[in-house]
Computed example of a mutant assay.
Amino acid sequence: MKIIRTSTIPLSLNVLLKGQLKFLNGFFEIVGISSEGELLDEVKQREGIRTIAINMERGISPLKDLISLFRLYHILKSEKPAIVHSITPKAGLLTMLAGKMAGVPIRIHTFTGLIFPTKKGFIQKVLINMDRLLCSAATNIFPEGQGVKKDLINYKITSKPLKVIANGNVNGIDLNHFSAGKISEAQKEQLKKELNISESDFVFVFVGRLVGDKGINELVKAFSQISKNEERSKPVKLLLIGPLEEHLDPLQPETMEEIKNNPDILDLGFQKDVRPYFAISDALVFPSYREGFPNVVMQAGAMELPSIVSDINGCNEIIVEGQNGMIIPVKNSQKLKNAMETLLSDADLYHQLKMNSRPMIESRYEQSVVWQALLKEYKMLLKEENIYV
């Protein structure tokens, strides 16, 4: 029984679905389709699945999108999967349309995040209509969390039933991997030494793409004011872990200048293993404008870090105000600064949030729960279509 999983870029298959594809491959023949690159080869090797490279543009590109659509159609027609299941917006649109054209009986798209709620005018209308078209071609829609589900309903994207798998999130969290105990004291001391971080420093960490809609402009502004305030309760550092994507959503020039010149901001780029950086940090700061269900907030919680997050989908499901973190308004550097200062100055609150962080992830998002729920869903859909495993 063949199931094809697709994403626009291989990073999504490689990171968002890590381990899941290998697990499902024990029950079905799983094939991964995404744009070409080393990460697609890595998925093939690590997950033990067959992969097919079909380049897909992340932005709107009518001619290239049409070429990708027909390549997908021909692949699906020849492969004859029982299920095709996409994540990420462009792969979702192209896969659902190609799947319908090719007669794939079960066509699933998981919305891991919505772009249009943060857009306005003509662009928003285009994005809404693209998602409506996607949904019209799909047989099943899985919002990644309750917030995404509400947006799909409120914007009237589809009248089809919407199902959140397990407690939300596309892949759950590997609690054995994301565990503070996996990083030794010697490793932490060595990394602190390399980064010139002292024992007295309170370390904030951000993990994600360094772009405007991740809230980096607000974060750098808030942190800069704190780090330059001589009356602060303790010295601070900010670790920025992630790639700078200047071509899609560039940071403001003053933000780039501050990152470059502030000695307390450490721009460390993409890191394959983020656990050591969580292990030497005290709190995650994640002021994103939009998310589906952010893995990084779960990962930080599993590593026993409280989080400051914006009041958006996913973040406000993982974090409960005053229990395992703090929730602030979107695009508000002053509120962000206030929350960061609260963690710096209120030791009792900080330790309470830290103590709750891992247990609140364990109880809701353990990885095997998500995988088993998805497997059960696949089997149920196949049975409903009289396709038996």
Rank of each mutant, 00 (worst) to 15 (best):
A102T: 10
L72V: 04
M56N: 10
I108Y: 11
F27Y: 15
V126C: 03
K125R: 14
V84D: 07
K119S: 12
G121P: 00
L63C: 02
F70L: 10
G48W: 12
F116I: 07
I49S: 06
T112I: 13
E57D: 14
T112E: 09
F122T: 10
L97D: 01
T51K: 02
K90P: 00
E29P: 00
T6H: 03
A91M: 04
L24G: 02
K90D: 04
K22Q: 13
N25G: 03
T95C: 02
F27L: 02
F111L: 03
L94G: 03
K100A: 01
S68Y: 11
I83S: 05
S35L: 05
E47K: 07
V31G: 01
L97F: 10
S12Q: 12
I54W: 06
K90Y: 08
M96C: 06
F23Q: 07
S68F: 08
N55Y: 04
L16C: 12
R107Q: 04
R50P: 00
I67L: 08
T112V: 13
N25K: 09
R107W: 07
I108N: 09
F111Y: 15
I67R: 13
M96H: 02
I115N: 09
G103N: 10
I123E: 14
P81V: 06
L93C: 03
I4V: 15
K125L: 07
Q124A: 11
S86F: 01
L13K: 02
I75D: 00
P10K: 04
N25S: 10
L16D: 07
I49L: 09
I4R: 11
M101R: 04
N14C: 05
V15Y: 14
L63A: 13
L76C: 08
A53I: 08
L63Q: 08
K100T: 01
M56F: 15
S61T: 14
T95P: 01
F23L: 06
L24R: 06
I75V: 15
S68K: 05
M96F: 01
L39W: 14
A98Q: 09
V84I: 15
L66G: 03
K80Q: 14
H85F: 05
I33N: 04
T88N: 05
R71E: 14
G121R: 07
K80T: 12
I83M: 05
E38Y: 09
E79L: 12
K44L: 02
G32Y: 07
I83P: 00
K119Y: 14
L127P: 00
T51Q: 02
V15N: 13
L66P: 00
H85N: 13
P117E: 11
A82Y: 13
I30E: 03
L69C: 05
T88S: 11
T110D: 07
L94Y: 10
G59D: 15
E57L: 08
I60V: 14
T112F: 03
L97I: 15
S61L: 03
A98Y: 09
P81M: 08
I52D: 01
H109D: 08
G121T: 02
M101V: 03
F28E: 04
R50H: 13
V126I: 15
G92D: 11
E42C: 00
A82D: 12
I54R: 06
L39H: 11
G48R: 10
S12Y: 13
L76V: 11
K64M: 05
